[in-house]
Design a protein around this nucleic acid. Structure first.
Length: 584
RNA sequence: GCUCUCGUAGUUCAAUGGAUAGAACAGAGCUCUUCUAAGGCUUUGAUGUAGGUUCGAUUCCUGCCGAGAGCACCA
């Protein structure tokens, strides 16, 4: 149990209050080690109760005086302080009232040394939490479509999904990871049409597929004759009736999927299962037809639709008038397969771009009507888009940056930054790959998911300031210290006499709480913010303190802090999918 | 037109209804014969607008202004 948990519980039980108050780490150290707004929250509740029961002839302002509690949050805080002091636990060294009614709490400085000792002992497992263990989460987060390119938007989805998955795992849950690929559907037909009309024969590669899609998509919109041809091709893809198309299809699909594997490998994401629309489509079609009879779906203009208006949403088509399943029906089929394979589960998460928000609300509703047992178990996590300074990316116009290109460009930039002359070209290559991916993942995960990211390649290349490499670099320096000290100074988590607790130690102790909050909110950016602050604090520590010093008795403890820093950073960066080079 | 999301330093982002709104980049200045300067230190600078709720609002509610996304057979 962390100190945070202990203190929260202590306040809760001692004051006999609900747990809806906040126990935070104040930004300003003069506000103690912990601060809580419990008095302000409770005051609010008391006045509300009194407001609703104002007896005749009285004014509600008098309310608090009737119960003889307090006239304002500050006075209530004073009362609480008294109760807390009478029931003090060992960890707490002081309780103070401040400002409008905050209760600030200081803790025994020895606890920080204990935390350092503990981190050095348990290593990278320090942040793990077995508190809520045992839930099974399904998470689907990579939906690149075969026959189209894997662009930076897919990469964003992948990086976010992977970090959320790792966060959930860190809190003791089981996570099953899925990718989902649209290997059938109109976009495929567009690409096949493009391939046929591009005149490349069966000489396909990932590039010609991209061009073919852009061509097909353009003509689909501009030319009604082509539109009909593409719709015909789409039908043939579903029923596999055309040999020529089958050959192009199988080949193109395999080229795409192989390409995706390569990128997953590079990004470091691994999936428990790959799903394909070609398998979810027939299942979805069947289910939609079945639940048409049960009244969940209805017929309209030849199509089968779900009337979202009945729950304040909009109508979506599930089977088109040719009887083919749309994306919507495929989602129904997909969920059926997921349930068959991975039940029981507690939460099923789907990570997509936020342009699908409205669409997902409808699908979720339909899913809940088809599978009532899923009520409350579906979570749609949506993120923003990556925008170029020139505007939105579009694979239709070919105005698209592939993930591969971005990584390689960043890699080239970072390889030139390595100044260490002793590093071999091979090692430089490895370091640059880690730095490039670190920079990319950091820039995606540093902000709250949901917002768009304006991706400026020149800025990304600078690699200064808050960035992936900044975090990596701080760990590299810390590692160098440990290497150098080996055989010279013993590492000891025993706090020296007269030691003044540093902010670095305080931050290290918080790591488990940060992880817990990041997980609960599905918000990796809290972790990023924390690791950045932690690195910054380490870098200050590094420049102010002489760490390896045979003359100084504090050196052993300083090294223990450095070691703890490395563990926490390694663990945190691992969750973000950022690797740490040995040197850089 | 309807629905949803979003407006915070020059720029890119933080901030659990709380205390003096934090960083980074860019700008100005300082700092490598102590361990990696991809570092450290100092400094200039912000809540779109008008109301409301609250002891307290960047955060919640309403209007306005501005940006983006979605709205029937694409995914």
């Amino acid at each position: 149990m962390t100190i945070h948990h202990k203190i929260k519980k202590w306040i809760e039980e001692t004051l006999k209050v609900d747990k809806d108050f906040v126990l935070e780490y104040p930004a300003d150290p003069s506000h103690g080690d912990f601060a809580t707004n419990v008095a302000m929250v409770e005051y609010r509740k008391i006045s509300k109760i009194l407001d609703s029961n104002v007896p005749e002839g009285k004014h509600k302002e008098d309310g608090l005086r009737w119960v003889g509690e307090a006239n304002n949050p500050r006075e209530l805080a004073e009362k609480y302080k008294q109760i807390l002091e009478e029931n003090k636990i060992d960890e707490v060294s002081g309780v103070f009232v401040a400002g409008p009614g905050f209760i600030n709490i200081t803790i025994d400085p020895k606890l920080f040394a204990l935390a350092i000792e503990k981190i050095d002992k348990v290593g990278e497992t320090f942040g793990e939490n077995k508190h809520y263990a045992g839930s099974r989460f399904l998470i689907e987060y990579a939906q690149p479509n075969p026959f189209k390119e894997f662009h930076i938007g897919h990469m964003m989805n992948n990086v976010i999904g992977e970090s959320v998955a790792k966060l959930i795992e860190s809190q003791g849950n089981e996570v099953v990871r899925f990718s989902y690929h649209g290997d059938v559907g109109l976009h495929v037909a567009k690409t096949i049409w493009g391939v046929i009309n591009l005149g490349v024969g069966t000489n396909l590669n990932i590039k010609t597929l991209g061009q073919a899609y852009a061509l097909g998509a353009k003509f689909y919109e501009d030319d009604d004759v082509v539109k009909k041809e593409i719709i015909e091709i789409n039908k043939k893809i579903y029923d596999k009736s055309d040999q020529e198309i089958n050959i192009l299809y199988d080949k193109g699909r395999q080229i795409s999927l192989d390409d995706f594997e390569k990128i997953y490998e590079r990004l470091g994401s691994h999936f428990d299962h790959h799903f394909y629309e070609s398998e979810s489509a027939p299942v979805g079609k069947k289910l939609v037809e079945e639940f048409l009879e049960k009244g969940v779906f209805e017929k309209s203009e030849g199509a089968i639709i779900f009337k979202g208006e009945k729950v304040g949403l909009h109508t979506r088509v599930f089977l088109n008038s040719d009887g083919l399943p749309t994306y919507e029906a495929k989602e129904i089929g997909l969920m059926y397969i997921k349930k068959e394979k991975y039940s029981p589960f507690d939460i099923s998460i789907t990570v997509t771009a936020n342009e699908q928000d409205a669409f997902f609300k409808v699908v979720e509703k339909a899913l809940e009507e088809v599978f009532p047992e899923l009520n409350g178990k579906l979570l749609h996590l949506s993120h923003g888009l990556i925008k170029l300074p020139s505007g939105k990316m579009s694979s239709r116009t070919g105005d698209v940056l592939t993930a591969e290109w971005i990584i390689d460009t960043l890699k080239e930039g970072s390889i030139n930054k390595i100044r260490e002359p002793l590093i071999s070209p091979e090692e430089k290559e490895i370091i640059a790959e880690m730095v490039a991916l670190g920079a990319l993942k950091f820039s995606i995960l540093r902000q709250a998911i949901g917002g768009d990211i304006v991706f400026d390649i020149n800025k990304a290349l600078s690699l200064d300031g808050d960035s992936g490499p900044y975090l990596q670099y701080s760990v590299v320096r810390a590692e160098a210290l440990l290497r150098k000290s080996r055989g010279q100074i013993e590492i000891s988590g025993k706090q020296p006499e007269g030691w003044k607790v540093t902010l670095l130690e305080r931050l290290l102790e918080r790591f488990p709480s940060i992880l817990e909050r990041s997980t609960n909110e599905y918000a990796p950016h809290h972790l990023v913010t924390y690791l950045t602050a932690l690195s910054s604090e380490f870098n200050s520590f590094y420049s102010v303190e002489k760490i390896i010093d045979n003359e100084n008795v504090n050196s052993s403890y300083k090294l223990a802090i450095v070691k703890a820093f490395i563990y926490v950073m390694t663990s945190g960066l691992n969750i973000l999918g950022i690797k740490i080079p040995e040197r850089m």
